[in-house]
């Protein structure tokens, strides 16, 4: 048990190391590009450039540059963005993380709830017109680009109908920290997270419907009915228990990917100062330290989430021993 845990942790570290090397080489070891100039920003004085070169070890061998970079990221945490007036980037990312976390948690709440409702309903009413309508709605949600939907939502709730009874409660764009005002926090995140969730609800409902219908054909479901279990119990207790697995693994990956900055477009459209928007800024201004920090943050999240999902998988399905290969 402990051995499996340690080997899993070792694997994770190895993956993160691999990603960091890869990201580092893309941004800093690309031939012909001078990272010093990039970090310093346009029109930097020769003194600044020289200081950066010394600080990051750009005059030395690549491995040393890598070690310096990692040291600045993880140990001293004083990686500084010169583009952004000498702002240290690690605290910046750490400050943005709760915003993203709040947004994604809310969105996950909506998309899990919504897809459960729609998925179960359309499986129970399979091939009826309700099922068909629900599935079409799902595809529409799936195929609407988030940034466009976000803009439309903003157009209606912020300007067009903002003064009507329907949307007068909508706060202006931006984020309110939970510690400051929980109610304001919820209000500020309601529409952004619903927008973000819209594309997932359809997909998840579809996956759940297919899995559930597959599971309902299993022998064990027949046994459940032969035991005298009612339809609610058969569908929700036995059926869902069997269809969870792919749903959970899908959820784990999407959730991690969103936390790692995948909600970029939603954050930009709704002016939420999260990790995604930070990445966007970094990319827009070619702020190498910031990009480095956000990408590493994202990688760590995805890897950790993957490990967690594997753990949950073993809990859900006792047939998977060791939790190494998920199905």
């Amino acid at each position: 048990m402990i051995g499996a845990f340690l080997s899993r942790a070792g694997q994770m570290l190895l993956v993160i190391f691999g990603i960091s090397v890869l990201v580092f080489s893309i941004f800093f070891a690309t031939p012909g590009a001078d990272p010093t100039a990039r970090i310093a920003g346009r029109g930097a004085s020769p003194q600044v450039v020289a200081r950066i070169r010394a600080e990051y070890g750009f005059d030395r061998a690549l491995p040393i540059q890598y070690v310096r970079m990692m040291e600045k990221l993880f140990v001293t945490r004083d990686l500084t963005s010169y583009v952004d007036h000498g702002e240290p980037v690690v605290p910046e990312v750490m400050g943005a993380a709760p915003v993203t976390l709040s947004l994604v948690l809310w969105a996950a709440f909506f998309w899990v709830g919504g897809s459960l409702l729609i998925g179960v309903a359309s499986a129970v009413l399979r091939d009826s017109w309700i099922d068909r309508i629900l599935m079409v709605l799902g595809v529409i949600g799936l195929s609407m680009p988030v940034f466009w939907l976000g803009e439309v939502v903003n157009l209606f709730t912020q300007s067009r109908w903002h003064d009507t009874w329907m949307f007068s409660w909508v706060p202006s764009l931006g984020y309110v920290p939970f510690s400051q005002n929980p109610w304001g926090w919820a209000k500020a995140l309601f529409l952004p997270s619903l927008t973000l969730a819209s594309s997932f609800i359809g997909l998840y409902a579809r996956v759940l419907r297919a899995e559930l219908l597959g599971a309902m054909g299993e022998d064990s479901i027949r046994t459940a009915r032969a035991k005298g279990a009612g339809p609610v119990r058969v569908w929700l207790w036995h059926g869902l228990r069997l269809s969870w697995l792919s749903y959970v693994s899908l959820f784990g990956l999407d959730f991690a990917q969103l936390l790692g900055g995948g909600a970029l477009l939603t954050e930009v459209v709704f002016a939420l100062p999260g990790v995604g928007r930070l990445t966007y800024q970094g990319l827009a201004t070619l702020d190498l330290p910031l990009i480095m920090a956000t990408v590493m943050y994202s990688a760590i999240f995805v890897v950790v989430a993957n490990a967690l999902i594997d753990g949950i998988y073993t809990l859900l399905d006792p047939r998977i021993a060791g939790g190494r290969n998920a199905r």
């Binding site: 064990s220 032969a226 036995h238 228990r241 047939r319």
Partner: peptide, 12 residues
């Protein structure tokens, strides 16, 4: 049932 392996829910 015929096959007790599949007739039981595998996850409980």
């Amino acid at each position: 049932f015929q096959d007790p392996m599949t007739a039981f829910l595998p996850v409980r």
